[in-house]
Design a protein around this nucleic acid. Structure first.
Lengths: 248, 248
DNA sequence: CGAACTTTTGACAAGCATCAACACGTGTGG
DNA sequence: CCACACGTGTTGATGCTTGTCAAAAGTTCG
């Protein structure tokens, strides 16, 4: 079984950011049972209230997690890309407490949760790595609470752009200062707790002061240090991913 | 060793909300090595940047986790009480990404992380329960992102009050509709991304419309259904804790 | 009984939302 | 190939929610 070619290889790579794994552990990850499924942009991987039977790994494309509040407004909770295990937590919890939706066309691998539980006795290190993965996820969520709670619009957007840049680079999809933004301005708004109109104005402001460039979604971060300062971006909270791109 | 009298009993009780544990597992939790320490209000249990060597369990009193952003504003990320394992995640991560501070005088039990890691082979169910505990924590954080990101001031405060009520009841510290609020209005503001002045006005509005009563910090939720509706409070995200108080 | 918090009040300012319209690019079908 | 719809981005006018500043009143505790 040629490990490097397994669709789960990027997932394994991500786990290894957190923990050293033995050859047997690596093999156990790559041979997890999984069903690969292509989905169109906008498709739901899970919905709030769904019973949690599977967790899934992103193979290509982008997804986000989000909640819808009473008045119908949407709040994006996180953005995920190649190699991310989305809803690893569903391994342990009974029911999904949020939605997971494809931002672009994606390929995902569904893994039955039981298969992961079965690794506990035989490959505890793998389970430990997955636990860490969920903890890093939680750390990112804490940063997002601070982002939407206590930063102004400019900082929120700048922070989000920096984070996405680092995650893209850690996933080896792009350089952190030059990438195709996988979000529309409306989705940036939903991620930052703003309106799309105001996000648009913030983008213009950031362009105006020379922090970012590029046209449309092709984003170029001309002045990383500047943008990071505007966004109060200190990447410690990304743990392994920050180190992976030399920001630790 | 009389389990019921161990200071870790409330922690065990919380873990058992998530998983059925054997007698041996229960015993293993209660006999975890720990150092009990009383702390004054305002004391830090951990600081951002600290190396993570211990995790701690709250025995009495209240603590919060928070971050400080560039301009000096503070964002409270969660509120914890008796039986909560705060920073269980530090078992796995290298460095604390936020502060943990006592809101009132507290007693905490520090547990060396290594002792928890050592349970992996011998008591996997205990480790699994702790994992679930961290996942429920993450679920609550997601709800907070939506709360500060997409709800107006009234709803944010109402939501927070409902959540604290349910957690207090689940911890058997009070009824969910009648309790001593462990936060000052300024701390409520830091938890909801508002200013204390505005929080004060929201409290008056909620009192005015008959949703809440009581004077000072002694809060009485006169109309739970009303407050829950104002706050868009649907407690699924609390998982086991919601069920424990009959809200599932 | 005074010092340090905490809550409350008022006047005013600002950031962001809202609404509405328009521009632009892209893909689709006639 | 053009017409058209649709999603996305852009702009302007206006107003509300919430922040800011400052001061007073109430509370707690040594």
């Amino acid at each position: 079984m040629p490990g490097e070619l397994s669709p789960l290889a990027p997932f394994l790579r991500k786990l290894e950011l957190h923990m050293r794994l033995s050859a047997a552990d690596r093999e156990a990850v790559l041979s997890l049972p999984h069903a690969v499924k292509p989905l169109r942009a906008g498709a739901f991987l899970f919905r709030e209230g769904d019973p949690a039977r599977n967790c899934c790994v992103i193979l290509s494309g982008f997804v986000c997690r989000h909640k819808v509040v009473a008045e119908g407004a949407r709040q994006i909770l996180s953005v995920h890309m190649k190699g991310d295990g989305v809803d690893l937590q569903s391994v342990m919890l009974d029911v999904a407490d949020h939605n997971v939706q494809a931002l672009t066309a994606v390929e995902v691998a569904y893994i039955p949760t039981q298969a992961i539980l079965d690794l506990m006795p035989t490959h505890p290190a793998v389970v430990q790595a997955m636990w860490i993965e969920t903890l890093v996820d939680a750390s990112i969520q804490r940063e997002w609470i601070a982002n939407v709670g206590r930063r102004d619009a400019r900082a929120r957007v700048a922070h989000l752009l920096c984070e996405i840049g680092v995650k893209l680079e850690a996933a080896e999809l792009a350089r952190r200062d030059c990438f195709e933004l996988p979000l529309t301005q409306e989705q940036v708004a939903d991620a930052t707790g703003l309106t799309s109109v105001h996000v648009n104005r913030v983008f213009q402001a950031l362009r105006g002061e020379g922090a970012i460039g590029g046209r449309k979604r092709s984003l170029v971060i001309d002045d990383w240090a500047r943008l990071a300062e505007v966004g109060d971006f200190r990447p410690t909270y990304l743990h392994g991913q920050a180190e992976a791109v030399g920001l630790a």
